[in-house]
Amino acid sequence: MNTQTTAIEVLGITKSYGDHVVLRGLDLTVPAGTVYALLGPNGAGKTTMIRILSTLIGADGGAARVAGFDVRTQPDGVRRSIGVTGQFSAIDELLTGRENLRLMADLAHLPAREAAARVDELLARFDLVDAADRRAATYSGGMKRRLDLAMTLVSRPRLIFLDEPTAGLDPRSRRDLWQIVRELLDEGVTIFLTTQYLEEADQLAHTVGLLDGGRLVAEGTPAELKAQAGGETLDDVFLALTGHGVTPESDDELEEIR
């Protein structure tokens, strides 16, 4: 497979927890240098999909290649190629923001000079300069989210997974994050993200996959999907294709989940 053109290739992935079937044979392809948005309600299996693709858990069946590496047999190849910002904060709260980033730089084996420069650059880019030497435990939710993403970018991965990157962010922070995604895209990075926000998929994604009942019930550009279902918004599309909406619980409940 050519990693230049295909970043992610998934064939018939299945995954169950006990009797509970989460993914029932998922196929999808993400061309390099594009944004793919996996859209689905709570419990649809979005996080499960990301965990499989980022080698955190194994699938029960099917195959997946990420950056040209088989997730089952070449997990280290996958890990060298990807960056992951999970749904839940993956920062070290006892360390400062700067130390968290430096930890990533050291683990990426950057030479000391380069590491320090990269850390400063990311602190500036994510508006964390003032808070750089405070413990991450004292950061607000939005700051933690930014630090989390900055940590993912330290090693300059060519393929990035973002699991609900804007959940719990205020509208301004959400737009800032979209801007960052667009900048990454300009740098040629491939992005695989999940979201419950239709607007987000509409704004960012080249391809949107609608995940429901463990299957991709529809896939296409936001425009194609809208045409297909004859609706104006992706919400209409979801309703037309699944018989129910995508809108999750209230924001309060989302807050609780965080």
Partner: peptide, 13 residues
Amino acid sequence: TEGIVDRFRTMPI
């Protein structure tokens, strides 16, 4: 129990 270990596990460490 803190997410950072999951991050480590997705890295080539």
